[in-house]
Design a protein around this nucleic acid. Sequence first.
DNA 1: CACAACTCTGTACGGCGTACGAGAATCCGG
DNA 2: CCGGATTCTCGTACGCCGTACAGAGTTGTG
Lengths: 258, 258
Amino acid sequence: MSGVSTEDNGDGDPRRAIELLWGVSAPPRRGPKPKLTTADVVRAAIALADADTIDAVTIRRVAEQLGVSPMSLYTYVPGRAELLDLMIDHAHGELPVPDPRLSWRDALTAIAEDQWALFHRHPWLLQVTTSRSALGPHSFAKYEHELRAVEGIGLDDVEMDAAVGLVTGLVRTTARSSLDAARLVRTSGLTDAQWWERAAPVLAGIPAAAAEHYPLASRVGQAAGEAHNAAEDPAYTFRFGLARVLDGIEVLVSERQR
Amino acid sequence: MSGVSTEDNGDGDPRRAIELLWGVSAPPRRGPKPKLTTADVVRAAIALADADTIDAVTIRRVAEQLGVSPMSLYTYVPGRAELLDLMIDHAHGELPVPDPRLSWRDALTAIAEDQWALFHRHPWLLQVTTSRSALGPHSFAKYEHELRAVEGIGLDDVEMDAAVGLVTGLVRTTARSSLDAARLVRTSGLTDAQWWERAAPVLAGIPAAAAEHYPLASRVGQAAGEAHNAAEDPAYTFRFGLARVLDGIEVLVSERQR
DNA sequence: CACAACTCTGTACGGCGTACGAGAATCCGG
DNA sequence: CCGGATTCTCGTACGCCGTACAGAGTTGTG
């Protein structure tokens, strides 16, 4: 069970959202002292998401966490969507600045590992997608640092963008599958092994699902599944993919240098 | 604006879901003739998702589309989550079987392009993640065919799994970013250019956002943005990434062959 | 013909985001 | 020092959502 769906929204004027992201807002001259700040709201929301999933971040629950009525959150944040954007940028602020002396390969490796770690600290980052207005200072800096890693190695601008996108995309997908699996175990209360134990007899009763119809899928799926359960392994797919991607970029760089 | 979130669920007994996926169900012996079939429901749901987003797939709207009361859908489908699983497997059924005579490189390329096309036909596939019980016949076949492409080229089972995961993950991320951008244009009613026109003055008023603080991000971001708007281009990142990934796999294959 | 099995439906519950408008607190200009 | 403008806070309410539950209608079987 368990499909996972992503909701969209999207609205009009970006001004307010951008101001919030960049922390520029004239402090109010009149009126009662605010009980909170936008940062408080963002922090509370992140705490909820960290402890559970992004679904735990509802206006009502964030407000409760802060001891405030739901509607008063709208003083600090235009709506839930913008709150998610703020959470993303805030989390990106945790990424370290890569050492500028590293080779492009080591730099991309460091970046990939930092992001891998970030996703494991904040799995909800994989449950949201950034949008145009999510371009806050930390997301900007993240992109800048990624590009710095591949600057001057012979790629043109569009290739640089594609190359860093390739690496960060890899981290996203591998982290996602590793964390989705972990979350599934948590929410279903069944380990993969237990689940298969339960599912196997059902599948066995279905002729069309017989292993001989899917010989490779059965063999490889089992091998991969066992390796995956080795618990030191979720990172295997990540490291494998990273090695391939870096090798692939290296091929291009070598070509360019000739 | 516009964060996008993914919801989770997850429940207990997989039996019913698996039976639905594999289409094994004793037809009812008593009772009134069903007005619909599970396949009808799945098709209607896919039509709604195709025309809009996955959010359009609500029990109430699917029922309305079918001229039936919301609750009667639960006769055909255990719940919304399982409906999403069924939609995924159904869509995977549209993937062609790759020509077995192709080289591993051509086969992976064909597979990647087929999936790229599938995601563009059914963008909602990128808004849902599969779960354990989503292992229906077509998803199984998809995995089988992917593995067939890299069989016998010198990789072990775990590497085969990682390699095809790498390619399919690449397609997902690149298709996602291309389609997210397109959807954003549709729902916000603003093209990227229009949005930047509106956002630029706001950013200009923020000293911290000045281009000199993010020299690479500004330059490369603009170049990539312009190239991206060339409209023949959304596929560029995809083809770039695919070439790198295939080159990277090739490096490994060559090593193994020695 | 009676009953069991099955489909279909209306109602209802608890959740969600957030529009609206009223009240309370605070600061500024006079 | 006071009155109005401004701002924060909150209760209520609307329209969505998934789906639990119980009843009504329909059909094949013994």
